[in-house]
């Protein structure tokens, strides 16, 4: 029973991390139609910036603010300035995806060149713990789950209750029509990059502090699982990313407990492949229509 409870709790914790980043990744894709493969490196850059700017502080609120701001700025620079330039020149979606890979590698190797290949560690964790039915959970893990829930709620409110959210959804659905309604797609996309980056930075902070240490490859390592959650839910669909994160988080914990820890990652991928066979568009998405990249 304790093991089962542990699977659920730590599955939710894993899902929380994946959801924060996954929603950012898929939201930006949904609005801009740009497959941003530099997302993992933005995440890494956010951790480095947060770590450097706050003096390795583990004050979670300061870290969250700095991490989110860092991610937002880096994401905006990459998306609006660099990628935007390619879009304006009519580059294809594939070309732009390759550009984001190049940016990712530049960021990763740049960080490695500047900071060295070493691991960076936060101060030893002083998290208090709580015993829930025999399962020991740290305050940091609970905070991550709560922040993820709040972030998801905020994204929901943004998309459903604000004009900006309406503009985002409209841009995602039909750029031409959106423009004819007086909404600037470019501005909407910029906001999408900003929000996506903020969530990316937030995810990075929780990932770094949760793991206690990080390096120039931390974000790249995490990104594939994060992207898998987004794809599982339906790429471009924030609610799908939340659901995908939950499925992957709990599946991987269950595999570790029931089968073997070695199957932790494999199980999540098996689920992904199995779901995509049945629903190639992901759990929650409709088939995505081919759309042009328009500045």
């Amino acid at each position: 029973m304790t093991l089962l409870l542990g699977i659920v709790i730590f599955g939710i914790y894993s899902a929380a991390l994946l959801a924060i980043g996954g929603v950012g990744f898929t939201l930006q894709f949904g609005v801009t139609n740009v497959l941003n493969l530099s997302f993992g490196s933005i995440l890494t850059a956010s951790i480095f910036l947060e770590y450097g700017l706050t003096g390795h502080s583990t004050n979670i609120w300061i870290a969250m603010a700095v991490g989110a701001a860092s991610g937002a700025v880096v994401s905006l620079l990459i998306g609006h300035v660099v990628v935007g330039a390619y879009i304006r020149r009519g580059a294809s979606g594939f070309s732009i995806a390759m550009v984001t890979i190049a940016i990712s590698l530049m960021l990763q190797f740049g960080l490695e060149a500047i900071q060295g290949p070493d691991i960076y560690a936060y101060a030893a964790s002083t998290n208090s713990t709580m015993n829930i039915g025999g399962v020991v959970v740290s305050s940091g893990q609970l905070t991550t789950i709560i922040v993820a829930v709040v972030a998801m709620a905020a994204v929901h409110l943004l998309l459903r209750m604000t004009k900006l959210g309406l503009a985002m959804r409209a841009t995602a659905a039909d750029v031409t029509l959106t423009r004819s309604c007086g909404v600037s797609p470019a501005r909407t996309r910029a906001v999408a990059w900003l929000v996506s980056g903020a969530l990316c930075g937030l995810c990075g902070v929780f990932l770094g502090i949760g793991e206690g240490s990080f390096s120039s490859t931390t974000g790249s390592d995490f990104f594939i699982t994060l992207a898998a959650a987004a794809v599982l839910g339906g790429i471009g669909k924030p609610y799908g990313a939340m659901l995908g994160a939950l499925v992957i988080g709990i599946t991987s914990q269950a595999a570790a407990a029931v089968i073997s820890p070695s199957y932790k990652s494999i199980a999540a991928w098996i689920i992904l492949i199995a779901v995509l066979v049945v629903r190639p568009q992901g759990i929650m998405a409709e088939f995505a229509a081919e759309r042009e990249l328009v500045a």
């Binding site: 894993s14 570790a256 407990a257 820890p261």
Partner: peptide, 13 residues
């Protein structure tokens, strides 16, 4: 498994 974000379930076992 390497590079996981949590090992609490493994530790329980």
């Amino acid at each position: 498994a390497l590079d996981q974000t949590t090992y609490e379930t493994e530790v329980q076992k």
